[in-house]
Write a protein that binds this DNA or RNA. Sequence first.
DNA 1: CCCTACTGTGAAAACGATTACATACATATG
DNA 2: CATATGTATGTAATCGTTTTCACAGTAGGG
Lengths: 326, 326
Amino acid sequence: MVKMKDVAELAGVSSAAVSRYLNGGYISADKAERIKQAIELTGYVRSSQARALRTGSTKLIGVIVPKINSESVSRITAGIGQVLGRRGYQMLLANTDNVAKRELEYLDLFQNHPVDGIVLVATVVTDEHRRAIESCRVPIVLIGQNVEGAACVYHDDYEAAFELGQALAGRVDGKIAYIGVTEEDRAAGYDRRRGFEAGLRAAGNPLDAALIRLGSFTLDSGYGAARELLSVAPDVSFIACATDTMAAGAVRAIDEVRGMGEGIHRVSGFGDNAFLRALTGGIPTVHYGYLTSGVEATSMLLDTLDGVEGERGLKTLKLGHQLMNV
Amino acid sequence: MVKMKDVAELAGVSSAAVSRYLNGGYISADKAERIKQAIELTGYVRSSQARALRTGSTKLIGVIVPKINSESVSRITAGIGQVLGRRGYQMLLANTDNVAKRELEYLDLFQNHPVDGIVLVATVVTDEHRRAIESCRVPIVLIGQNVEGAACVYHDDYEAAFELGQALAGRVDGKIAYIGVTEEDRAAGYDRRRGFEAGLRAAGNPLDAALIRLGSFTLDSGYGAARELLSVAPDVSFIACATDTMAAGAVRAIDEVRGMGEGIHRVSGFGDNAFLRALTGGIPTVHYGYLTSGVEATSMLLDTLDGVEGERGLKTLKLGHQLMNV
DNA sequence: CCCTACTGTGAAAACGATTACATACATATG
DNA sequence: CATATGTATGTAATCGTTTTCACAGTAGGG
């Protein structure tokens, strides 16, 4: 492997000069030319490992996601990757498979291991998480949750759910049920449910607590919860779900119980999943700019790291949403 | 930052001893104990950057994918991540957004940048790709394509498509159309189409070349191609698609043209997408073990890197498939 | 003409681990 | 008893950069 010293010798300069040439320090035109040629001739490439050791920066960003194989997360990840690639960084991806403990592990791993910054696609944020984030040695940005004291890019789930609830209350006649997710997930669990309830209430059609079920983000859990609802309360006429994935399961359940094609008129979701949109013709749901949230969070992070002038710094950013098909 | 020397001093040994303790060399019981305590006391963690510089190994695996936000790819990635995490490696993810040139760029980047091995989720494999793979300095495994001379984990798309075609020929009465993808993608483009054609032919119902369209993996492209087909050849009674994603688009198109609910009986796909399965009740499709292919490819790669005994080495592995809903 | 200020340069000291080498003692082997 | 063999340890070299420092030359301001 050809190293800097070899290039320097070939060009008849010191390796310091080569380093300066590469990093933009003082270098005279003729030496620059000689170095350039020597590099081309030898096919020299910098050892990023030596560089990392010396500078302490790796140009690596740790990205922690709850579940890579989900539409929303993989879109966010695509957004993150876009910005990273464009700006000369690489992505170290950690998939926690929805195990909150593993998030902490990776947070820890990334501290010691070589990342310049961290993007955390957050779901459940415990006190332990907060502490880990607080004491993080590298800059960190959260996506999907609004956590006090941390830089966050998130959507206003409460507001969106409120609007959805309000809109549906006027449109649906009959009983409305709700399939949510754990309230430990502040945004998707707590906020969406509370917002939805408040929206229904504001429209004079409050949610019956007996018609609330809990899913686990999966299609199957949505299906199971809906089947159970339909058997316990056969007069339910509409099922609102906290995610489009669970909504797909609910559609399936209704199709099975009430006949094919019934489901798509009696379910709402969150996230505006493309498959769901195409196959149902569009159920009521909330469109979030997932890709955008990845882009924004990453831009903010890299601005901080690169010390971009006029930099906005790490702060919290609330993105908009859009009600669909109501 | 506390370094090895500090630990060594505190424990009253040389840093070589600490290194040996950490890496399992000769060390006496009492020194081991003292070192252990010193490490705990100081909260010392190895600098992976120094380690990488010295050893040349980074415990990083480069993963190149065509599009992270797609069901199949994100499942494969989940499988890769599982194995990596379990075996102490981390994933450097590169998303090429279906730009073949970017694959080469990343392949190059990963050569110089610090990865111990590469997993390439392949689509289009050009000669240039082949050359790059051939001359790759680190071990590399391909997923999804069977390329001569490279280690590959793939599915037999031809065979699967053949079976699907044969099965459908007997079930469908009327004209069958096909929406494929570029044949530059050997597996999803060439093999699926040829296999499907052969299957139909074997069943005595050959595919009309005029009823073949080309999509681009996206739902919208499937929709567009299907709409076009339906307007040009209104008597088409079934549309087979090269991917479930495009199939979803085709379902939508048929629903629009022929009435809601019609699509799900007149479309087949590839990949057994969960949404599609739930919302259509299950169209004919082929189930591939995407997660498994990620797991297998990565295990093979790491076995080679870690020099696991009884190691199978880098070789090519064909995984099975399963016809669904026919 | 002196003093700054800026440009250019190379030698050498980091960065923080791993490991080749030298050395030593203990035990086993013949 | 001489000779291997295995265990245990520290010293110092090494990985390939970046960067500090010291030193020069050159130009501009007064």
